[in-house]
Write a protein that binds this DNA or RNA. Structure first.
Lengths: 109, 109
DNA sequence: GAATTACATAGCCACATGGCTAATCAATCG
DNA sequence: CGATTGATTAGCCATGTGGCTATGTAATTC
């Protein structure tokens, strides 16, 4: 049982407003570091840290060509989040159904 | 536009392994504080803080009856996460399609 | 009514996080 | 070549976060 879920890490990466906004921007297509940084009134290095967090979390990849680094989304990451949420919401709703059934049953008595 | 997205807050709540596990446990149905705390080798007050974080984030509600507090999931929260992920993944995949089309077009020349 | 149980509050501490400036490196432009 | 631009590295600092112990309070149980 050496297997820790990677999801808390993904969530952590998305828990910062700056990083969250970056992901939203990237959903519109890849962008350079400076394009991504532009909307955020923040010093370059501070912003870079955020990008590194996103990349270490696996939400984002990047390639550097010449002096420009182009960053893009990794769809698998979003997919795994979606799968997890879907599964747990489903379990929960199933439970609510059983509760509803129980209450209805109770009502009859 | 005074409207900040609530999602980073939700993600923050899920970014801690303990809290993440609590949510997973709660997907199986409501539970008391001590039932939730049991699997986590951690002092009571430390664990309580986590529950409070989850509650402030809106992922969880609780009612105290007698001396026992019962905690349950708030499905809306998971739902809003799912909706966000779905939307952004969709945008991204649409983009990939356009890229594919572009590359195919390029191939012809 | 005394002891136990189930949470809760207060306060402390170590470390992580998020921001900054200054300085560097490498590619491109004039 | 020299200047500029885009990204990066190296520190520094304030604040937040996650853990603890000690103590408190309210509901049950014996």
């Amino acid at each position: 049982m050496a297997n820790q879920s990677p999801l808390p890490g993904l969530f952590g990466a998305l828990s910062d407003p700056t990083r969250f906004a970056v992901v939203e921007q990237l959903a519109g297509g890849p962008a350079s570091v400076s394009e991504l940084a532009a909307p955020h009134d923040m010093a370059g290095p501070s912003f870079l840290k955020h990008l590194n967090v996103l990349e270490r979390a696996g939400l984002v990849t990047s390639v550097k060509v010449g002096r420009v680094r182009t960053v893009s989304l990794v769809p698998d990451a979003l997919e795994s989040i979606e799968a997890w949420v879907k599964a747990h919401r489903a379990r929960w709703e199933h439970r609510l159904d059983r509760l509803g059934a129980f209450l209805a049953e109770d009502e009859k008595s």
